[in-house]
Simulated scan of single mutants.
Amino acid sequence: MFKQYIGWKFVLASIAVLIIGTTIWFVSNLSRNIQEEERKKVATWVEANRELLRASSEANLNLAVDIVTNNTTIPLILTDETGKILDSRNLDSMRIMQDPHFLNNELQAFKKQHPPFIMEVDSKQKLYNYIYYGDSLILRQIRYYPYIQLIVVTLFIAIVLFALSSTNRATQNQVWVGLAKETAHQLGTPLSSMEAWLEILRDNEANATIVTELSKDVDRLKLITDRFSKIGSVPKLEEKDIVAQIENMTNYIRKRAPQKVILTVHSAEEELPAMFSPPLFDWVVENLLKNALDAMEGKGKIDITIENHPTFITIDVADTGKGIPKLSFEKVFKPGFSTKKRGWGLGLSLAKRIIEEYHRGRLYVKSSEINKGTTFRILLRK
């Protein structure tokens, strides 16, 4: 799946680069051709002005007038030898009237764009005029076109990637929800059978110890079934004491943890009411504690610190395990990510979804150091 995802993204990016590269090459050639044509037009315009000054024949004069008057696209500025502006063509007349520096600014820009044409005005006195010209509006638009296309293509790719990513997430969510509900459904049948067998065992007092232990396991399976059945539906949040809820789950894990592991709950308040779904919140805490136990490999310390803030509550689960590389802080919550040889890598992914989507809180890696430990933080809004 990951290789396919990278593959089509690479193909999409390659096509976009090819389109943009081809366009830039084509537009560059087109711009050069248009620029050369405009240079020739200006040269013809200058020659027409020379003919007007000479006024050698009526035919040439008419032709020169036509050439001079037909230039309506290329902006021109005429100056004398001292740089004084004598005339201008195809520039914004309103700007010229409103801004006294407009023509000078345009002249400086034209000087940077193209070398001027020199036109002899008086051969005896050796007087010359200089014609400076700039790029026409069409040429400027053509030059900007590749950048506009780049923006459009980038937006298109971004929209496609977002749409595909959203579709992929929606499909994954449907798979996880369907898997969870199907698991809850499949557990229902053997649970009903086990409860029936428990009733039969209760009839014999000699089975009292067995019945007690089996009842605990059946209740545990009921809780797991209830958790799975709630995935995909909006859970009912209840106001309960979060300190007591965490201590109950810690006691459950403590009985099943190695003897060399110390679990401690720290809270400045004995009771702290909060809005949460008990079955789902227990699942989150259980997942974090089990991950901590796996990271410590049989010995170490787990500290659960509960803090009350004006607008939110934080629960930090800190272990003394092997730690998580900083680059993997976000990856640990991805479905399928796991450092264990066994397991589907869904625990932290589901825990994050429970806290962030159902409880509108946050679950993230607060800090971690290799071979020193990791701290996960749950943030619940009041």
Rank of each mutant, 00 (worst) to 15 (best):
G7F: 14
G7K: 14
V17P: 03
T23K: 04
T23P: 03
I24V: 09
I24P: 00
I34R: 11
E37H: 11
K41Q: 13
V42I: 15
R54P: 01
A55P: 04
L61N: 06
N62V: 00
N62K: 05
A64I: 02
D66I: 00
I67F: 07
N71E: 12
T73F: 12
P75W: 14
D80I: 04
R89C: 11
N90H: 14
L91C: 13
L91A: 12
S93T: 15
S93Q: 12
P100R: 11
F102K: 07
N104W: 10
Q113K: 12
P115A: 13
K124H: 07
K124C: 07
Q125S: 10
S136A: 14
Y145L: 12
I148T: 10
V153P: 00
V153C: 03
I159R: 04
S165D: 09
T171I: 15
G178L: 04
K181L: 03
K181P: 00
L187W: 05
E195D: 06
I200C: 05
I200M: 07
A206N: 13
T209A: 11
K216L: 05
D217C: 02
V218N: 05
L223S: 09
T225D: 02
K230D: 12
G232H: 07
E239D: 14
A244C: 07
Q245G: 05
M249W: 00
N251C: 00
R254G: 03
P258Q: 09
V261G: 02
S267T: 15
A268I: 09
E270C: 02
L280M: 12
N287Q: 05
L288N: 03
N291K: 08
A292V: 07
D294R: 09
E297N: 06
K301D: 13
I302F: 01
I306G: 00
E307I: 12
F312Q: 11
I313W: 01
D316S: 11
A318Q: 08
A318D: 08
D319A: 09
G321W: 06
G321I: 05
E330W: 02
V332D: 13
F333Y: 13
P335A: 11
F337S: 15
F337W: 15
K340A: 07
K340N: 15
W344P: 01
E356K: 04
E356R: 06
R362Y: 08
K372Q: 10
K372N: 07
F376Q: 08
